Amino acid sequence: MHDRDLDQRLIAILKQAPLRMHVFEIVRSLALPDWAVGAGFIRAAVWDALSGYTIASPVDDIDVLYFDPGNRDPRHDETIEQRLRDRDPALPWSVRNQARMHIRNGDDPYASTADALRFWLETPTCVAARLDTGGGLEILAPYGLQDLFSMSIRPTSRGHARRAEYIARITEKRWHERWPNVTIELP
């Protein structure tokens, strides 16, 4: 299957998930620069669909990403989180400006939100999406979508370099308990 086919498959899954579309609409309304919603919010929707689950997995947090090198103050993220809570207080919002996250992670500066995704630890988490003004979804996936759709957890180059963190995340998240068909590759 070509990446374009997987993109379309992911878009179809997200568009059939009312909560996901609700979140995309709320975040789009803030007009953040280079924004996307990613990580487990996307991964869980796909793995639930692939597993045939009719009840969506609980959402631990909603990772809202944006890229604004002109305002790297972490308090700005808190302000955005409050704006999101004002629109839907029941949702667990988590906002991070990717223009400053390289500092916390000890990386060279990221060039964009999509570039920041390359530095996450496992490939099926390095996926995000955003809703354009016409209602279409744009997918950001620097490692492609094959691992996401094959339910394979593999380390990125950063996951290899930070092996202990990668293993700790897998242990903590316990994805294999919720989705027994998941396969895990250790670095």
Rank of each mutant, 00 (worst) to 15 (best):
E81V: 08
A114F: 00
L84W: 02
Q146P: 02
W120D: 06
W120C: 08
V37H: 05
I42F: 02
D107S: 00
R75F: 00
L131M: 07
S150P: 03
R130G: 04
A141N: 12
A114S: 09
R72K: 15
L91N: 09
R130A: 06
C126P: 14
M101A: 04
R87C: 08
F24A: 13
Y143G: 09
A90F: 06
D60Q: 09
D60S: 13
S152L: 12
A90M: 11
A44N: 15
A44H: 15
F149P: 13
R28E: 07
G40Q: 01
R75C: 02
Y66S: 03
D86G: 02
G135S: 07
F41C: 04
P69R: 01
D88F: 06
A36S: 15
R43D: 07
V64H: 00
I55E: 14
W47F: 03
S29G: 13
F119D: 08
V27R: 07
N97P: 14
M101N: 06
M101G: 04
W93D: 12
T125V: 13
D61N: 11
L65I: 09
F119N: 15
N97H: 08
T133L: 11
D88N: 15
R100F: 02
P92I: 04
N105K: 14
P74H: 01
R118Q: 09
C126T: 15
A111C: 05
S152G: 02
W47N: 07
A31C: 10
L145W: 04
D73Y: 01
R87G: 02
A45N: 12
T123S: 14
D88E: 14
I103K: 12
R87H: 08
S94N: 15
D147Q: 07
A114P: 01
A141Q: 08
D147R: 09
D147N: 14
V64I: 09
L148N: 06
P33K: 05
A116C: 11
D63G: 06
G52T: 06
Y53P: 00
A116L: 06
D108E: 15
D60F: 01
R43C: 05
W47G: 08
G134Y: 03
L148W: 02
V59W: 07
A128Y: 12
G70T: 12
A111M: 05
F24Y: 13
S94L: 01
S57V: 03
A45E: 12
S51H: 13
V46H: 04
V37E: 02
D34H: 02
V37A: 09
F24H: 12
N105F: 00
H102W: 14
L137I: 15
R75W: 00
G136R: 14
D68R: 10
G40W: 00
V46M: 06
D73H: 08
P89N: 15
L65R: 06
L131D: 05
P142L: 01
H76N: 14
G40L: 03
D68T: 02
